[in-house]
């Protein structure tokens, strides 16, 4: 099949850029620890979330110096624990979240924390809060009538 000379150049340039871009993405994901959140399966019976550890006791636990674990349950239309979380500046927080009903979203405005919460699965993401402030955690996946009210905050000070 005949390709025009200029089209060959155009495609060679485009395909090379594409290759470079995909390699950068792959290297960042697999050797620099920047994979998308919630690596693979961690399951929980979605009808027994409140009785299953660690979701029987949702809240913030300190697990190291400046290192916290936030165990949370998303439900229509809120999060457990329902009170604002509080951590010092510079804290690294591991979020461990599941749903006790439908699919929800979990996004922290002003950060790159953004993941889906699917019933039966446990989602994981880690974020280090370097700047003080009151961060909005909200559900960004439509979950029903009160979806727009589903939010809490995390206070970093």
């Amino acid at each position: 099949m005949h390709l025009h000379r200029l089209e060959k150049t155009w495609l060679k340039f485009g395909i090379s850029m594409l290759a470079v871009f995909l390699i950068v993405l792959g290297v960042m994901a697999f050797s620099m620890g920047m994979k998308p959140p919630s690596e693979h399966h961690h399951t929980v019976d979605p009808t027994k979330v409140a009785e299953t550890a660690p979701f029987d006791n949702p809240g913030l636990n300190q697990i190291g110096k400046n290192h916290y674990e936030a165990v949370m349950t998303a439900y229509a239309f809120g999060f457990e624990p329902a009170v604002p979380l509080e951590v010092p500046v510079g804290s690294k927080v591991d979020f461990i979240v599941t749903s006790s009903d439908v699919v929800h979203g979990f996004a922290i405005v002003g950060t790159n924390v953004n993941m889906m919460i699917v019933p039966g699965e446990v989602s994981h993401v880690t974020h280090t809060f370097d700047k003080p402030g009151e961060y909005l955690i909200l559900c960004n996946e439509y979950c029903g009538t009160g979806h727009e009210f589903m939010a809490i905050t995390i206070v970093v000070q």
């Binding site: 155009w10 485009g14 998308p36 693979h40």
Partner: peptide
């Protein structure tokens, strides 16, 4: 990409396949 239950390998593999449509788009 942002959801649990799918391994990062298969997500990335399908990202690579996704970007192949850039070739006919350039054409």
């Amino acid at each position: 990409l942002m959801e649990p239950g799918i391994s990062p390998f298969w997500k990335y593999l399908q990202v690579v396949l996704t970007f192949m449509v850039i070739i006919p788009s350039l054409m």
